[in-house]
Design a binder for these strands. Structure first.
Lengths: 337, 337
DNA sequence: ACGGTTCAGTGAACCGCTTCACTGTCCTAT
DNA sequence: ATAGGACAGTGAAGCGGTTCACTGAACCGT
């Protein structure tokens, strides 16, 4: 029997004011200092607190920011979510975190759900940046995209993936690797992500013999994908488009008794905190997660507060060398041609 | 200029029915099959979808389940959150994930916030299970607690921490360890968690020389806490009350050039997926996260649907031996007394 | 003394849906 | 034939805030 909470009308009655006045007073607008004090006191007395749902219905705003993650199984995205969540709270906003599970259809549904929840803004790491509904969505609320650019967003924190890919592949090529497997989280349903295109282009430029395989972020699943490729095509190096996936390669290598980097070199992409703890440490492309968090929070807060100018922050990567990449062994036999 | 969405009244007009009838029809109550079809068709035609906010205000229900995590920096809690989020979606509900950052005060605020959001139920991993507001909260909505028991909850998935602690400490004691440091995520503000009490009791029973230190889940912070203790009191073994914290010990050991388990044995508590990947693998207490997720989802769904009977699921741990614990070296000199 | 501003505060109409109490109708049992 | 139920559907009152258009009063300079 939870006793009913006080409503604004009761506060109004208690202070002898109109509900409207109370509403204004509590938000610090249009009323005298003195009334404001009186209202505050009465509200405290009655234990009154505005109902966020009613408020959202009436005003169309909630103070919440939606955070739609492409795949929360990716540890890096988990870190990002936690960081953003914290960053927003410092701005007196709070985040609603949703997970699209790598499924573009679910991504669409959830994005709409968030809009319906009246979030003041949406931060998204798109699974499918090319999906048409983004444009529509961007018209009805401020959207900040992380990773890939989206048409019509209020802001974006984009990764210079071209540079990131170059960094990674040049590192590999520079150490003499030729046959490299690329594990990407790309779904079959969303081919041709910009990042993948870069891989192909760079591989071509560097004369690498590339094999692209898609792998999930989930450790168990990534492990079996890695197991498959390590035991069949036996590449000299594996470049993973997420540290999470690289962890799967470590696990698979362990299962197969392969040594890293002795038998196979591994590169990641993210720099998740755990990557430095592995043995050997994972050589990866560092995207400065703190910088991304700060930028995203700043952009969305500004956009939600009405600052409309589209802003773009480009994140530059750095190579974080640790120990999972070694010089390629001299070619056992000349290239097969 | 996002064109306004259709409302229930427009659907009513289109079908020649009253808004009430439409409302009922869309929820499959009290109307003839034929009307239902007609309404469905019109709704689809107009692209109508019920506004969740208005619905929540009017009905007091949302279909959402709140998930309040004690500290999302704990990787295990992250995994749990992701699992629960997924499990709920399969039940056509969706989770609102919040993070108390290990702060009891924030925990209180967020719990209330969730109640105000009209969540149909709340899953919580309490930072401070002894806080008085829980009892109150449990009266106004179904609560399922994970980890520590809460008075008045609709359900709980409790860990048999007594057993877990026994498992861990007996393992250590059995290998000859005497001086063991215990790193717990306990906040200074919430002493005497049941788990800590068990540690003290068991240590006493096993004749261990215990030093309890609190450490955060965050890798960097955990590392420095571990660094401190490893370099000052140099215990033979460290028992961490969360795998996340154990990761900090690994990092600190690396910094100090200590070998695990040669110089110091390490035990975790959780069994996070990454624990098996470290070198050496982290010996830990496995709580079967999948089982917990399933139980929690089942309990909260049942409770939210009105099943009121209080249910309790006790989770039993198993020891997962990997390689981070070794036989203690023979005492360098007899016990100091 | 007078029109013109400001300022504090009011009433009532929403926001979009749910739900309660009620009206007809048609069917069935007596 | 008639009381009694079921059933389909309606009207209007909310849910608890916000906001728009407006009213008085006080203050301004001239």
């Amino acid at each position: 029997m939870p006793r009913k909470r006080a409503t604004i009308r009761e506060v109004a009655r208690a202070t002898g004011l109109s509900p409207a006045a109370v509403s204004y007073a509590l938000r610090g607008m249009q009323v005298s200092e003195e009334t404001m004090e009186r209202v505050r006191a009465a509200a405290a007395e009655l234990g009154y607190e505005a109902d966020p749902i009613a408020r959202a219905l009436a005003s169309g705003r909630t103070g919440m920011i939606g955070l739609l993650c492409g795949s929360l199984e990716d540890l890096w995205q988990q870190s990002l979510a936690v960081g953003i969540s914290r960053g927003l709270r410092e701005k007196d906003r709070y985040a609603l975190i949703l997970d699209a599970v790598g499924d573009p259809e679910r991504e669409r549904v959830l994005a709409q759900q968030l809009r319906d929840q009246r979030v003041d803004g949406l931060i998204v790491q798109p699974v499918d940046p090319a999906a048409p509904f983004w444009a529509e969505l961007c018209e009805s609320l401020p959207v900040v995209a992380i990773g890939d650019a989206l048409a019509g967003t209020a802001g974006e924190v984009v990764f210079d993936n071209r540079r990131g890919v170059t960094l990674a592949l040049e590192h590999l090529a520079g150490l003499g690797h030729r046959r490299v497997a690329v594990l990407t989280p790309t779904q079959a349903s969303t081919p041709d992500r910009p990042a993948d295109v870069h891989v192909l282009a760079e591989a071509d430029r560097l004369g690498l013999d590339i094999e692209v395989v898609s792998a999930p972020h989930d450790l168990a699943a990534a492990t079996s994908a890695a197991h498959e490729i390590l035991s069949t095509s036996r590449p000299g190096a594996v470049f993973c488009f997420a540290d999470s996936i690289a962890y799967g390669v470590y696990a698979a290598a362990k299962e197969l008794g392969l040594s890293i980097p002795g038998d196979v070199s591994v590169m990641g992409y993210d720099d998740h905190p755990m990557s430095g703890l592995l043995t050997p440490g994972l050589t990866t492309v560092d995207w400065d997660i703190d910088g991304i968090v700060r930028a995203a929070v700043r952009l969305i807060a500004a956009a939600a507060d009405g600052g409309t100018r589209r802003r773009r922050v480009v994140q530059e990567p750095t190579l974080r060398e640790r120990g999972s990449v070694a010089q390629a062994p001299p070619a056992p036999r000349p290239a097969r041609r």
